[in-house]
Computed example of a mutant assay.
Amino acid sequence: MATMKAVQIDAFGDIDVLQYKEVERPEPQAGEVLVRVRAAGVNLVDAASRRFPLPITTAKKDLPYILGWDIAGDVVALGPEVTQFAVGDAVYGMPRFPDEAKAYSEYTTAPVADIALKPRTLTYQEAAGVPLAALTAWQSIFDIAHLQAGQTIFISGGSGGVGHFAIQLAKWKGAKVITTTSTRNVEFVRALGADVVIDYTQRAFQNVVKDVDMVLDTIGEDVLKHSFEVVKHGNIIVSLPGHKGVGQLGAELAPCYGIQFVLAMVHPSGEQMAEMAQLFDAGQLKVYLDGVFPLQDAGQAHKLSENGHVRGKLVLTVE
Rank of each mutant, 00 (worst) to 15 (best):
A274F: 03
V7L: 10
G245F: 12
V162E: 05
L192N: 08
A40Y: 09
P241R: 09
S156T: 12
L147D: 09
V292M: 02
I167D: 04
Q8L: 13
H243D: 02
K286C: 00
I115L: 06
A72L: 11
P111R: 06
Y92I: 11
E319K: 11
F261S: 00
G193I: 12
E306W: 04
P119H: 07
V212S: 12
K313Q: 13
K210L: 02
E271S: 14
D143Y: 04
D114F: 03
M1G: 14
Q139H: 09
M214W: 14
F228C: 02
G308F: 02
V186P: 06
Q206S: 15
G161K: 01
G247M: 11
I66S: 07
D89Y: 00
S140W: 03
V262Q: 13
G88F: 06
P294M: 06
P26W: 07
A40K: 02
K118H: 13
Q272F: 01
Q260S: 14
Y288N: 12
L253E: 12
Y107Q: 07
A113I: 09
V76Q: 04
A128C: 12
I9V: 14
K286P: 01
A2Y: 13
I15M: 08
V262N: 07
S49A: 15
Q202R: 15
V287T: 13
A170R: 01
P268C: 03
K118R: 15
D99Y: 11
T3I: 07
F165K: 10
G247Y: 00
Q168H: 02
I237G: 01
G13Y: 15
E100D: 11
S105G: 15
V310C: 06
I237D: 00
V23P: 10
L279Q: 15
D89H: 00
E306H: 03
G31K: 04
A282N: 12
Q139T: 03
S105L: 07
T121C: 09
Q284A: 08
G150E: 10
Q202N: 08
V287N: 01
G174L: 11
S105C: 06
Q284D: 07
E24L: 13
V162I: 14
V262Y: 14
A191L: 01
G150I: 12
L122K: 05
D16I: 04
D290N: 13
F228K: 08
D213K: 09
V112D: 05
G270L: 04
E81D: 15
F261R: 00
R25W: 00
W172M: 09
G73Y: 00
V17P: 09
P55N: 13
A86L: 01
N43A: 08
F261D: 00
F165Q: 08
V223R: 03
V189N: 03
D10S: 15
